[in-house]
Amino acid sequence: MLRILTQVLRTGIVTEPPPATDDAALEALGLELRRAIDARFGRSLALRHVDAGSCNGCELEIHALANPYYDLERFGVGFVASPRHADALLVTGPVSRHMETALRRTWRAMPSPKFVIAAGQCACDGGEFGVSYASCGAVENVLPVDVKIPGCPPAPDELIRGLLAALRVPA
């Protein structure tokens, strides 16, 4: 226990904007996101993520949103395990034909109002995989998409910006 406390104290709080991006910018972004969420969904935004055919690159960056540098939850954005608890569906990957029905069913299970956010190049326009015998391509070929976050994969700060844009979309 002592070792853990020592490590925690030694580490301190690292939650801060990335050195590569502008300090004030990320902070402002987070606050704006916070305000938008307050206005639209009360106090929080619950996301359900579905990988519909991704290479797993986007998932790694979505995971990074939870690390102490971004700590997405402090802005009231969290990931939920059930689509029934979700306000928005975050979809990554081109939609593989084998995931098409699972994706539709996940979306149908969500209560309204609901958003669909296409995250990553493949979700936005099919990316490297496009439309083929195995792939439906972009998410919008399968579901109505409200917001697209391009990038291969989008970096965590780009994901935060995209989530903000999602909240600006009129319901």
Binding site: A52, G53, S54, G93, P94, S96, M99, A102, F129, S132
Partner: peptide
């Protein structure tokens, strides 16, 4: 097989 995107044919 759920994320079969047809890489070999692409």
């Amino acid at each position: 097989g759920y994320v079969h995107t047809g890489i070999e044919r692409l």
